[in-house]
Amino acid sequence: MKPNLAIRMAWRLVWQIVLSSILAIITFYFSIIVLERMTRNNDIHRTFFKKLYDMFGETPLLIFGVFVLFTVYMVIFNWRRFSYYDQLSRSVEHISKGHFNDLIPVKQNNEVSYLADNLNSLVLELKRSLDEERKAEQTKNELITNVSHDLRTPLTSIIGYLGLIEQDRYRDEVELRHYVQIAYSKAERLNVLIHDLFEYTRMRHDVIPLNKQAFNLVEMMNQLLVHYRLSLESAKMKGKLISNVGELTLMADPDKLVRVFENLLSNAITYGYTGGKVEIYLNQYEESAVVDIVNYGEAIPAADLPHLFDRFYRVDKSRAENGGGTGLGLAIAKGLVEKHGGSISVTSDGDSTNFRVRLPLS
C-alpha cells in the first residue's frame, strides 16, 4: 500500500527546510570567517565589507546572507525533482499524441514517481479500453457479416423454389411437393437461426430470467434420452446413461438446462454417428454435479477446440448445409451454463469427444 502522499510531501518539505536552514547558517558562518581572514590584510576588501555593514546593518545582512544560501540549498535539493517534472510533462505530451505503448519512466522513490506510476496505470487502462473497443467493433462487423450470410443462404433457396412454383415450372404434383418440402425445410432453418439470434442477444444483454426450482438431474437426463430415442435410431446409434448416484438435486431453471443438453446431445448425434453410440455420465464431485456427454465419432481438430464456444464458429466439417447448425448453439449453451454458476468444456482425441458440464448442487 502506498503511503499518504500529502503526509510524505509535508515531511519531505519540513526536512528540506530544516536541513537547508542549518546548512545555510553553517555555510554563512564559515564564509564570514573566511572573508575576515581574506580581508584582514586587504584594506580594499575590508573597506568594502565595512560599507556593507554600515549600509544594511549587521543583522539584516546576516538574514539576507542566510536567506540566499537557504534558497540555493532548497533549489539543489529539489533540482532532480524539477528535472523529473519536466521529463514527466514531455512524456505525458508524447503519450497524449497516441503513443500508448510508451510509458513514463519511473526513476525516483518519491511522490513524483508515484504520480508517474499512476499515470502509467491510467495509460495501460486506456489502452486496454481502446483495444476492447476495437475488438467489439470487429466482433460487431463479423456478427453482421455472419448473420447476413446465414440468413441469405436459406432465404435464397426459399425464393428460388417458390419462384419455380409461382411460374409453374414443375412437371407434376410429385415435383411440386418436392419443391414445397425443400422451401419448408429452408424456412424452418431460417426460423431456428432467427430464434437462436434472439436468444443469443438476450443472453448477451443478461435479460434472460431464470425460473429456478429444485429438480433431479438424473431424471432429466433419462427423459432426454427417451425423447431422442428416434433420432438415435435414425442415426443407427445407441444412447446410454451411466451414473454412480440415483439423485442429483439442482436448484436451477430446468427448461434452460434442457436447452443446453439438447444442443450437446444433438451435436453428438450429428457429428458422432460413425461411433455408433452416445454415453452420458453423471457424477458428483464435491459440491458440483458433473455431466459428460461422450460420442465416439470423428475427433474435433485441436485447432478448433479453443474456439468451439465462440458465436458463429463452426468446424469445417460442419459447414455443409445439411449438417451445419447456426453456429450459435454452443455459445448459447455456454452462456446458460455460466448464468447458472457452472462451467462447460470440451476435450477430443482420436477415440472420443467429451463435452463436460459442471453445475453447482443445491
Rank of each mutant, 00 (worst) to 15 (best):
K2Y: 12
V14A: 12
V18D: 00
S20L: 01
I22M: 10
L23D: 00
A24H: 03
I25E: 05
T27R: 02
T27C: 11
Y29K: 13
I32N: 13
I32S: 09
V34I: 15
L35R: 10
E36R: 15
R37L: 15
M38K: 12
T39Y: 11
N41Q: 15
I44P: 03
H45R: 12
R46N: 13
T47F: 11
F49G: 04
K51H: 14
L52E: 08
Y53K: 12
Y53N: 14
D54I: 09
M55E: 14
G57A: 07
G57Y: 05
E58G: 01
E58D: 09
F70D: 01
V72R: 00
M74L: 15
I76F: 00
I76N: 00
N78G: 03
N78Q: 08
R80M: 08
Y84E: 12
Y84M: 11
Y85M: 12
Q87E: 15
L88T: 11
L88R: 06
S89M: 13
S91N: 11
S91H: 08
V92L: 13
E93K: 14
G98F: 04
G98Y: 06
D102A: 11
D102C: 07
N110G: 09
N110E: 09
S113E: 08
N120T: 04
N120R: 05
S121G: 11
V123D: 01
L124S: 13
L124R: 13
E132L: 15
K135F: 13
K135N: 14
A136Q: 13
Q138T: 14
E142F: 13
T145S: 15
L155P: 06
T156S: 15
G160R: 14
G163K: 07
Q167E: 11
Y170C: 00
D172T: 05
E173M: 11
H178K: 10
Y179I: 02
V180F: 06
V180G: 04
Q181C: 07
A183H: 04
K186M: 10
N191S: 15
V192G: 10
L193I: 10
H195R: 15
H195V: 10
E199Q: 14
E199S: 15
E199A: 14
Y200D: 07
R204C: 09
H205R: 12
I208C: 02
P209D: 04
L210G: 00
Q213K: 10
F215E: 00
F215S: 01
V218S: 04
E219Y: 08
L230I: 12
S231M: 09
S231R: 07
K236D: 10
G239V: 03
K240P: 03
K240F: 08
N244C: 05
G246K: 12
A252E: 02
D253W: 01
D253S: 02
P254S: 04
K256G: 06
F261E: 00
N263Y: 04
T270H: 10
T270F: 06
Y271P: 02
G272L: 05
G275N: 05
E279A: 06
I280N: 01
L282D: 02
Q284I: 12
E287C: 09
V291M: 05
V291I: 11
G297H: 02
G297R: 02
L305Y: 03
K317S: 13
G323C: 03
L328Q: 04
L330I: 01
I332A: 01
K334F: 01
K339R: 12
H340N: 06
G342T: 01
V346E: 01
V346A: 08
G350C: 06
S352A: 14
T353I: 04
V357E: 04
P360R: 07
